[in-house]
């Protein structure tokens, strides 16, 4: 997968979406004001909090692995401090969100587990709670309300980052599905004028379309006269799949190529007859070998064993 493709998910950073997320968390203007009011306190405690934070991170094997490079450690510590102070600077707008999402993309890319990510936030919140308690010893309700606002904001950030993780994974799955689809429909030239199309796996409408288009292009490019379509690898056939198959065969015929379908398993044959699928217009033979033999006969090839080739296998009579 190319990294250029990891664009920011547009769905997460639209202003509608941001508004909805904030509304659900009841993150209001007074929360913004409350957070801004403790900015000076946050700056004062930033270094101590970050220090605690990394001591915690580095005391675990799993998270330590991400900071084996001292330069990386210095860099992320600086980033983390910037984020810590940013939390109390107000203006949690689209740019703020885009930044959070970008961090999520980076974390997903380096493979930081979600559990570590959540654990880090938990440690963060506990550490800040302790500091707030100290700072507002005589006004515990003040410490409590600031903490509540901070919690809303960090949950907002966590939601964004988690959705970024999920989105990135879904994109990976999608691109892999495409790759599988591409891989599974090769059209092979077996002899001049003879194409082999082995179909493996389920056929859905999209795949049937790609398959037919690939087959037709190959018919033209190779000037094929006969196509052997092998369905040994197709696990099940219903009316729709059979219809796709018939369409592929008929389209190839329009381009002057005759198709032979091979490898219909006995239970699939039973199902097809029970479903009333009529493949009478299509030439079908039992297995791939007979299909190729039939195709060679149609094209005027005769394959004969000369006897002076490779020695016969031990125990097998020629």
């Amino acid at each position: 997968m190319t990294y250029e493709k990891t664009l920011l998910p547009e769905t997460l950073i639209s202003s509608d979406e941001i508004g909805q997320r904030k509304a659900f968390l009841e993150f209001a203007d007074e929360d913004v004001a409350r957070l801004e009011s403790v900015n000076e306190v946050a700056i004062r405690y930033a270094d101590a909090v970050i220090e605690d934070f990394y001591r915690h991170l580095l005391s675990f094997e799993e998270t330590r692995a991400f900071f084996s490079d001292p330069d990386v450690l210095v860099h992320v510590q600086r980033m983390q401090k910037a984020y810590f102070t940013r939390l109390t600077q107000g203006n949690y707008d689209a740019e703020y969100v885009a930044n959070r999402v970008r961090i999520g993309v980076v974390h997903e890319r380096i493979g930081l587990p979600v559990k570590s990510y959540f654990g880090m936030y938990c440690f963060y919140l506990r550490s800040v709670m302790q500091r707030l308690q100290e700072e507002y010893k005589d006004r515990p309700e003040r410490a409590f309300s600031v903490f509540a606002s901070l919690m809303k904001l960090t949950f907002f950030d966590m939601g964004l980052a988690t959705d970024t993780y999920i989105e990135a994974r879904e994109r990976t799955i999608q691109s892999q599905q495409e790759a599988i689809r591409e891989l599974s429909t090769p059209v092979l030239l077996l002899r001049p004028g003879l194409l082999l199309l082995p179909i493996i796996g389920l056929i859905d409408t999209l795949r049937a379309r790609q398959l037919t288009e690939q087959l037709l292009r190959a018919v033209r490019a190779n000037r094929a006269k006969v196509v052997v379509i092998d369905v040994t690898g197709v696990p099940s056939v219903d009316t729709k799949v059979a219809n796709h198959l018939v369409q592929a065969v008929e389209a190839a015929r329009l381009m002057g190529a005759l198709s032979i379908v091979t490898g219909i398993a006995p239970d699939i044959a039973q199902t097809m007859v029970r479903l009333g699928i009529d493949l009478m217009r299509i030439t079908t033979v039992g297995d791939l070998q007979s299909g190729i033999e039939e195709a060679e006969r149609l094209l005027g090839y005769t394959v004969r064993r000369t006897g002076d080739g490779a020695p016969p296998l031990a125990g097998v009579q020629p």
Partner: peptide, 29 residues
């Protein structure tokens, strides 16, 4: 002769299969 891949695909989807008519790839064939 000379039915192009896209045309062939569109035709079968419309159910136009030219049944009973001979077809070939191009003029030569």
């Amino acid at each position: 002769v000379g039915i192009q891949p896209d045309v062939a695909f569109a035709m079968v989807q419309l159910g136009l299969t030219l049944e009973g008519t001979e077809t070939a790839l191009d003029l030569e064939d």
